[in-house]
């Protein structure tokens, strides 16, 4: 890519990542949540990959780590459900829904944790799909 794109991505990329984290963390208070925030984080990572390009070694390590993150997100979400089962008695019951002040960040019991788990999972899933679909290993030209 041209230097213009690289400079702009270097300036903007961090803010996109930060915005994705904000959307994930404030999912129970404002529009957004795990699905939207995870997709935004993945879009930021894909943007920096498209702008700077990668070597084959970097791509291999990135695909391994994204698989690990995806499994971690799925297991975390399941863990939230199982905690509800073992502590509260029902699968996915909301533990301590009235903890904290309503309308502030620390509230809504286990919903923010579910949001974080889903955000990690969606971001890693989209990134790993992109890595496979767009990696340099599979170029088919006639």
């Amino acid at each position: 890519m041209t230097p213009i794109v690289k400079v702009v991505v270097r300036l903007v990329g961090g803010f996109i990542f930060l915005y994705g984290c904000y959307i994930v963390l404030y999912g129970h208070l404002s529009p957004g949540g795990g699905f939207a925030g995870g997709a935004i984080i993945a879009a930021g990572l894909i943007l920096s990959r498209l702008a700077f390009g990668t070597t084959a070694k970097q791509e291999k390590s990135a695909s391994i780590s994204s698989s690990i993150f995806e499994s971690t997100g799925g297991l975390l979400f399941l863990l939230v459900g199982l905690l509800g089962l073992f502590v509260g008695g029902y699968f996915f019951i909301n533990l301590f829904p009235s903890f904290g002040t309503q309308g502030r960040l620390v509230s809504a019991g286990s919903i923010p944790f579910s949001n974080i788990a889903i955000g990690i999972k969606v971001a890693a899933a989209i990134l790993s799909i992109f890595l496979v679909l767009a990696s340099t290993k599979y170029i088919f030209k006639e």
Binding site: G33, F35, A39, V122, A125, I126, I129, V132, L133
Partner: peptide
């Protein structure tokens, strides 16, 4: 619909692969 949109991206990517 919120979850269906993200699933749609996964299905599209599978079709493309």
């Amino acid at each position: 619909v919120l979850t269906a949109i993200v699933i749609g991206l996964g299905v599209t990517a599978f079709m493309l692969s």
